[in-house]
Design a protein around this nucleic acid. Structure first.
Lengths: 339, 339
DNA sequence: GATGTTTTTGGAACCGTTTCCAACGGGAAA
DNA sequence: TTTCCCGTTGGAAACGGTTCCAAAAACATC
């Protein structure tokens, strides 16, 4: 079926291509009778405009790219859901780039031949390096980071220090003093200002405020993942003086801790308290006490911020904006007083 | 920064645009010295070809669209992971269309202005209606269904009847005779041949084979979701003669059953056995016994089948293919002998 | 009916690639 | 020296839209 073009329609309707284009884009200055004639021709030929040609001509794509570690971070999926809601509403399409590691992330950024295939970019969780940021800024592509930080880019964040503080404070209020912290690895010196590091800061603040001495043996880290966290939990629970409560930098890691407890037949929360961070969907099913961060909302806010930048495009540099979302403790059944 | 075009490069290098294009696409018939000259010009102007223009000229996009109910079906995410692996390897981009309901699905299909923005289409879980299938076939776009069925389209499936049989048989072998089945709603008469219906068939087969009478009160259905399944489980457990085991059409629904048990302080598996279907990631964390279906693999197979169709395109109709993936029982800790 | 104004319309030029075809240059053969 | 051939090369045409400008048509005014 040779697909028909705008010129075919013009011929069929006995008008010029300009007129057909005007009908397609509901431009006001087309006489009613002409419009109908064109519409009839469109229907007769079953014509649909070719979006690629349109994109080329217009210089706009109606695509938004999202770069994120989807499969290793369940939180990405929930953020994505917020993003998707906004894009659908605005009739934009969503192009997904999955990145599991810093390396793969770098590769994706390098690979972007140009920033022409999309009108805006959302980056989740893994912030780009300075060099990439430079390229991004130079290209003029609107960018928003969600759950990632960079001084020169718009971003949607939470107050991680406060989150760490809230979690630790909760354990302290229950009466714990032997409180451990498990986090993912802080990959490069540069990334030390990452979320886990700031949550660690809040953890230390809460300890200090309560006059509890910080013990370096109670702080463990490894790559992010259930298995890794389980290993760390076993290490902690094998100490001669094991912690009575463990705070983890993510719910995924809390799951690892719960599994370790299960393997040791330790009952939670009677013998061990566990508190996570994020409040992903599974947390509810596992009755996990955690720090809730608005994942869905972060996606919505990020996408809206992005559209704001896209529409302000003419003025080039819209100021760098930062949105901080609220946190709250969600008490379920994995925390209780120490034994 | 006015981005440079292939003509700028040609001028800079003192060659024709054809030559630059040949260099870009590593066409063999370019003299080595010329190639170097062009490469120098490309570097000097920091030139990157515009992918949109390329797409228009080539009639190919290097995009694959995926339509799926991502957020309500955790299994979609794992399938997507398989899809993503294949696409990345082939340097294709992934455009996501999320659909939560039949209605939204229909809307997405209608919305596709044409099938020009992507070279192939993967549809997960919700099969298109006949009318849409007709449009798809007419457009010549290669399509593969994953976890969905339609006689005229390529598809990757599992043997649902056998899955239902395996699950039920497992419960029977443990000694259960009062076995209930919870499934999602079978939306339209047409969709009755859906997965849940076929699993139901397997359930009945196993019962019949063991000489256990089928009781209609033990079969309940509602919309797919944790809450809904929890409600159905409560109904079942309130019967004067409640089931001692519940088989659900998905792990998500099994989670609902587990929560109902928890609310009634019924211990699992001592007082109630639960078996799910899918083996999504959470299943492991919840120690849920379930029927494992290869989710990741389904994505891989689906994507590869799609590429097969794309490359066979010249011959128009590649035969309709069906791939059936294997199932297996994963015994964890939510099933045991009846009380 | 002539003139001026406004609304509609046709179509060339453009967006930035690829590809095809003709032309060119240089070496080998006659 | 001429002829032929082949590897390179330049550039026009094509992909299918949008937009701008000038011209035509419609209408208003005198």
């Amino acid at each position: 079926m040779p697909t028909s073009t705008i010129r075919d329609v013009a011929r069929e309707a006995g008008v010029g291509v300009g007129t057909v284009s005007r009908v397609l884009n509901s431009h006001p200055s087309v006489r009613e009778t002409t419009r109908r004639r064109v519409e009839r021709a469109i229907a007769a030929l079953n014509y649909r405009p070719n979006p690629i040609a349109r994109q080329l001509s217009l210089g706009r794509t109606s695509n938004i790219a999202v770069v994120a570690p989807f499969f290793i971070r369940p939180s990405s999926v929930e953020r994505l859901r917020g993003v998707e809601t906004v894009l659908t509403e605005r009739k934009y399409d969503l192009v997904l780039y999955n990145v599991e590691t810093q390396d793969k992330r770098d590769e994706v950024f390098r690979k972007f031949p140009r920033f022409d295939t999309f009108d805006g970019l959302l980056v989740l969780t893994l912030a780009p390096e300075d060099e990439e940021v430079a390229r991004l800024l130079e290209s003029g592509t609107p960018v928003v980071l969600i759950d990632a930080n960079h001084p020169q880019l718009n971003r949607v964040l939470i107050d991680d220090v406060r989150g760490g503080y809230l979690a630790t404070k909760h354990l302290i209020e229950l009466g714990h003093t032997r409180i451990a912290y498990i986090s993912d690895i802080l990959e490069s010196p540069f990334r030390f200002v990452g979320a886990s590091a700031r949550r660690f800061e809040g953890y230390r603040q809460a300890l200090a405020e309560a006059g509890i001495e910080y013990r370096p043996t109670y702080y463990r880290h490894d790559l992010h993942g259930v298995q890794e966290a389980k290993g760390l939990a076993h290490e902690l629970l094998s100490l001669s003086e094991p912690p009575t409560a463990i705070f983890t930098a993510s719910d995924t890691q809390a799951i690892g801790v719960l599994r370790a407890a299960q393997e040791r037949a330790l009952s939670v929360p009677e013998e061990l308290s566990v508190i996570g961070f994020d409040d992903i969907e599974v947390a509810e099913y596992l009755n996990l006490t955690t720090i809730h961060q608005p994942l869905f909302t972060s996606g919505v806010e990020g996408a809206e911020l992005l559209f704001q930048c896209i529409s302000e495009q003419p003025e080039r540099q819209c100021d760098v904006l930062e949105v901080i979302l609220p946190l709250r403790l969600v008490e379920r059944q994995t925390t209780g007083p120490p034994p």
